[in-house]
Simulated scan of single mutants.
Amino acid sequence: MNWLMVVLGALAGAPLRYLTDRAVQVRHTTVFPWGTFGVNVTACALLGFLTGATTAATVPPALQHLVGPGLCATLSTYSTYSFETLRLAEAGAKFFAAANALVSVLAGLGAAYLAGALATALLG
């Protein structure tokens, strides 16, 4: 049953990532990859909330698998983040490459921490 929940979450997460990335990126004229940044931070927040909720209350394993390794793992994308960071550096946009590398990690960690704290406060 766990593998089925992971698959179902992935079926939602992968297209959601692609469509969200495209929808966000076409609205910006900058070279900064806002779409990838947005989906990665969102996935970190969702996973942080799930972790906090699991710590504070009983979350069914099926839901944990659906949201965690299913939805969040396919919503976020480390490979695209890495590729876009390297592409920015190679294109001479070194400031944006460094900003993407640093801000993405800090924002992801911050979102996960804050969402986990929120879940614990709401459910604990």
Results as ranks from 00 to 15, higher is better:
residue 74 T to F: 04
residue 65 H to G: 08
residue 63 L to H: 00
residue 24 V to F: 08
residue 108 G to C: 14
residue 80 T to Y: 13
residue 101 A to L: 12
residue 104 S to M: 00
residue 124 G to M: 08
residue 61 P to V: 06
residue 106 L to M: 13
residue 98 A to N: 01
residue 31 V to I: 04
residue 25 Q to S: 11
residue 4 L to S: 03
residue 86 L to P: 04
residue 71 L to S: 08
residue 114 L to I: 08
residue 62 A to G: 01
residue 89 A to Y: 07
residue 29 T to W: 13
residue 77 T to R: 14
residue 36 T to M: 14
residue 26 V to I: 02
residue 20 T to R: 00
residue 9 G to F: 08
residue 56 A to N: 00
residue 11 L to H: 02
residue 22 R to I: 15
residue 18 Y to C: 09
residue 24 V to P: 02
residue 97 A to D: 07
residue 68 G to M: 13
residue 81 Y to P: 02
residue 100 N to G: 04
residue 68 G to H: 05
residue 122 L to S: 04
residue 71 L to I: 00
residue 92 G to K: 05
residue 37 F to A: 05
residue 77 T to M: 13
residue 59 V to K: 01
residue 98 A to H: 02
residue 44 C to Y: 06
residue 29 T to G: 14
residue 60 P to M: 03
residue 55 T to N: 12
residue 59 V to D: 04
residue 115 A to M: 01
residue 78 Y to F: 08
residue 17 R to T: 03
residue 78 Y to K: 11
residue 100 N to L: 03
residue 61 P to M: 10
residue 41 V to I: 14
residue 64 Q to C: 09
residue 5 M to S: 10
residue 71 L to Q: 12
residue 47 L to Q: 12
residue 34 W to Q: 00
residue 6 V to G: 06
residue 41 V to R: 13
residue 6 V to H: 06
residue 120 T to W: 05
residue 61 P to I: 07
residue 116 G to H: 07
residue 62 A to D: 13
residue 109 L to V: 05
residue 47 L to P: 01
residue 5 M to D: 03
residue 107 A to K: 07
residue 73 A to K: 03
residue 66 L to Y: 10
residue 72 C to I: 00
residue 119 A to K: 06
residue 10 A to G: 15
residue 121 A to E: 04
residue 65 H to N: 15
residue 84 E to D: 10
residue 65 H to P: 00
residue 4 L to K: 12
residue 3 W to S: 05
residue 20 T to F: 06
residue 94 K to F: 14
residue 39 V to Q: 05
residue 33 P to R: 07
residue 22 R to S: 10
residue 72 C to H: 05
